[in-house]
Computed example of a mutant assay.
Amino acid sequence: MTSRFGFHPVALGVRFILELMALVCFGIWAWHVSPAALRYVAAVAVPLAVAALWGVFATPGDASRSGETVIATPGPLRFLLELAVFFGGAAALYAAGVRVPAAVLAGVLVVYHVLSWDRVLWLLKH
């Protein structure tokens, strides 16, 4: 019997929450590293830029998304992009000085990706 956890609606809901958390982490980081005059702009612009890249590059047929894409991206490259966004968010939070929540988030991301091994394998094969 094959696992389908990575494509299960509950797992996709968890993934969506993790995506939002990553974007918030990038916003927190941008707030901390930007000059006072640009903090509000940076705290909005950085997560928006990450979200735009996240949404544009996708692997056609990915059942965890709509299956459609703006720029068709090979699965292994998409997986690297996902790791960069998810773990980049945790790293950004750590760099902003929020160390314990960053470490917890990184741990949750590891567990999520291990449990979603079927989706990871799908990406690596496409």
Rank of each mutant, 00 (worst) to 15 (best):
M1T: 09
M1V: 10
M1F: 10
F7A: 10
F7S: 09
F7Y: 04
H8V: 09
H8M: 12
P9A: 08
P9G: 01
P9D: 04
A11V: 00
L12E: 14
F16M: 12
F16Q: 12
I17T: 11
L18V: 02
L18R: 06
L18D: 00
E19P: 01
E19M: 13
M21F: 11
A22I: 03
L23S: 03
L23T: 06
V24T: 00
F26N: 01
F26D: 05
F26V: 00
G27H: 03
I28V: 15
I28W: 04
I28A: 06
W29Y: 15
W29C: 01
A30N: 04
W31P: 05
W31Q: 13
W31H: 13
H32I: 00
H32L: 05
H32S: 13
H32F: 12
H32N: 13
P35K: 14
P35L: 15
A36S: 11
A37S: 14
L38H: 12
L38C: 11
L38I: 01
L38Y: 14
L38M: 13
Y40F: 14
Y40I: 15
V41P: 08
V41S: 11
A42T: 07
A42K: 01
A42Y: 05
A43K: 08
V44N: 01
A45R: 05
V46M: 12
V46T: 06
P47F: 10
A49E: 03
A49K: 03
A51R: 09
A51N: 09
A51Y: 12
A52N: 02
W54L: 07
W54S: 07
G55Y: 11
F57M: 14
A58M: 09
A58C: 01
T59D: 03
P60I: 11
P60Y: 09
G61D: 01
G61Q: 06
G61N: 04
D62W: 08
D62A: 14
A63V: 03
G67E: 07
G67V: 10
T69V: 13
T69C: 15
V70I: 14
I71Y: 00
I71K: 03
A72M: 02
T73R: 02
P74A: 11
G75Q: 07
G75M: 09
G75A: 12
P76K: 06
L77A: 15
L77Y: 09
L80S: 10
L80I: 10
L80A: 15
E82C: 07
L83Y: 08
L83Q: 13
A84S: 10
A84E: 00
V85M: 14
V85H: 07
F86V: 01
F86E: 00
F87D: 04
G88S: 08
G88N: 06
A90G: 04
A90T: 03
A91I: 06
A91D: 06
A92C: 13
L93D: 02
A95Y: 04
A95I: 05
V98H: 07
R99D: 06
V100W: 06
V100R: 06
V100I: 13
P101M: 09
A102N: 01
A103E: 08
A103G: 02
A103N: 05
V104S: 07
L105P: 04
L105W: 00
L105E: 05
A106G: 12
A106E: 04
A106V: 01
G107Y: 08
V108S: 05
V110R: 02
V111Y: 08
H113G: 04
L115D: 02
S116Y: 11
S116W: 11
W117T: 08
W117F: 13
W117Y: 13
D118F: 11
R119C: 02
V120A: 13
L121F: 14
L123A: 07
H126C: 08
